[in-house]
Structures are given as structure tokens and as C-alpha cells.
């Protein structure tokens, strides 16, 4: 598997997209820091971008990579290599190269602008960690979708729909449910509902670390009580890991049974 992983990382490094992606982050980081020069404020602005863009790019890139490397996959399948090895190798290759682009692209400008002297260093690293986790989650979901649909267009459409659901529609549904059940105590519900969406969970995790968490009021206090403890933090990271583990298991399961 390591060999396949290595090959797919090399393959992606040779391709244009991971460069474009990291250059995009590089420019983004420099522009943000150039405009407000304050590392801790830039981290807050970065939050919105990481939460929306990394899942989107992970989804599109995952689907694209699967469909584009189909010929190579078929060639590999003719060799005496286990199927799970091939697909998991490709999946990890794609997600690792995307996460690397993210970490390097955003890391360089922040280090240049004096991240290590700033108090925001811990927030910045948790932001990068969450960005990387989101990349792994959404590439895994995209791979699942691509494995399930022969048709490229269907696969793309469905993948975009999944991203749309987690990034926007889920929040809409949550908002409507909360407004309708206004008369009931909703704190526990809000806590539970955010757990089932990796994007919401990451957003709350980062918000709680920032000053702005005071705005969350009583509900925020419930969240803080839960995520503030080490148990809650482990639970959150564990939940995000579950979002990686189950799709990966399904990739392994699906790839064994797929007809080529």
C-alpha cells in the first residue's frame, strides 16, 4: 500500500492541481496578513474560508482524481495486488497531498509574518489540523461516491450535492427545527445536532477557542462545558475520526465487490 500511496502522491505532485491549490493558499495567506497585519485576526477570517473551501475542494478533487486515474487503476488491477491496497493507497495519496498543500500554503505566510511570536499559534495549529481532517473526510466521501457511480456526471453531481448538504442545507434544516421547537429547551439538541455534521463540528470547535465564543451565551456555556473538558475535546476529535474511518471502511468494502 505504501508503494501505491507513494506513486499516487508523486503523480499528484507532478500534476498541476496540487501546486495551484497550495499557491492559492499561499496568496490567500499573504493577502489576509497584508490587509490586517494581525495574526490572530487573520486566523478568524481564515476560519470561514477553511470551513467552506477545504470540503468543497476535497470533494471535487477526490471525484476528479478517481475518474481521471481510472485507466491507471485498471492497469494496476491486472497486477497481483490486493484491491483494498490499490484504492486505499490512492485515497490516502490524494488526501495527504491535499492536506500538505493546505498546511504548506497557509503555513509559510503565517510563519513569515511572525506566527511563533504570536499568541494565536495554538489556534492556528488547531485550524490547520481541522482543515486537514476535513480534507480527509470529504475526499473519503467523494471516493465513496465515485466508486458507487459509473457515470462521471452523476458522480460529480452527487458529490457536489453532498458538499452542499453539509455546508448549507444541514444548517438550514437545523435553523428551521430550532425555530419551530422554540418552546422546548434546545441546548442539548443543538449540541447533538452539530455532532452529526463535520463542518458544523469544526466550526464550533474553532469558535469556542476564539473571543467571539462569549456571544454564544448560555448555549455557548453548555458547549464550553462539554468541549472545554479534555473528554469533550477527545470526543470531538474522535467524532471527526469516525467520519474518516467509516467512509474508508466502505471504500475497502465497496472496492472488493466492484465490477470493472
Amino acid at each position: 500500500m505504501i508503494k501505491i500511496l507513494k506513486y499516487s502522491i508523486y503523480d499528484l505532485m507532478r500534476g498541476r492541481w496540487s501546486y495551484i491549490y497550495s499557491v492559492f493558499h499561499l496568496i490567500l495567506g499573504y493577502v489576509l496578513l497584508f490587509l490586517n497585519n494581525d495574526v490572530s485576526k487573520a486566523v478568524i477570517t481564515l476560519l470561514n474560508i477553511i470551513i467552506v473551501l477545504t470540503p468543497l475542494i476535497g470533494t471535487i478533487f477526490g471525484v476528479m482524481y478517481y475518474y481521471n486515474s481510472r485507466d491507471f487503476t485498471e492497469l494496476l488491477l491486472a497486477q497481483p495486488i490486493k484491491r483494498t491496497t490499490i484504492f486505499l493507497g490512492q485515497y490516502f495519496g490524494a488526501s495527504i497531498s491535499l492536506s500538505l498543500s493546505l498546511v504548506i500554503g497557509l503555513g509559510i505566510p503565517f510563519v513569515v509574518y511572525g506566527l511563533f511570536q504570536s499568541a494565536a499559534i495554538f489556534n492556528f495549529f488547531s485550524l490547520l489540523l481541522i482543515g486537514a481532517l476535513l480534507t480527509f473526510i470529504f475526499v473519503a466521501l467523494a471516493y465513496n461516491i465515485a466508486l458507487s457511480f459509473e457515470d462521471k456526471i452523476k458522480g460529480f453531481g452527487f458529490a457536489i450535492l453532498v458538499w452542499l448538504f453539509f455546508a448549507i442545507i444541514y444548517d438550514g434544516i437545523l435553523l428551521i427545527v430550532m425555530v419551530v421547537f422554540n418552546d422546548y429547551p434546545l441546548d442539548k439538541f443543538a449540541l447533538g445536532a452539530t455532532m452529526f455534521n463535520p463542518i458544523d463540528l469544526s466550526r464550533i470547535l474553532i469558535l469556542l477557542k476564539l473571543d467571539i465564543s462569549a456571544l454564544l451565551g448560555y448555549t455557548g456555556a453548555v458547549f464550553q462545558k462539554f468541549f472545554g473538558t479534555s473528554l469533550g475535546m477527545f470526543a470531538a476529535i474522535g467524532l471527526l475520526s469516525i467520519w474518516i474511518i467509516f467512509p474508508v471502511l466502505r471504500i475497502a468494502y465497496k472496492s472488493k465487490r466492484k465490477d470493472f
Binding site: L47, M178, T194, L216, F223
Partner: peptide, 20 residues
């Protein structure tokens, strides 16, 4: 306005849906 009606919805602060 929504947060005033239902304080718990504040958990959606800074989500893309809220911006929309």
C-alpha cells in the same frame, strides 16, 4: 432577528447558510 426569537440558534454563527 432570529437569534432574538430563538437564542439557541446562535450556534449557527458564522456558518455559510447564515451569510446567505
Amino acid at each position: 432577528y432570529i437569534v432574538n426569537q430563538t437564542p439557541e440558534t446562535i450556534v449557527l454563527l458564522r456558518s455559510l447558510f447564515v451569510d446567505i
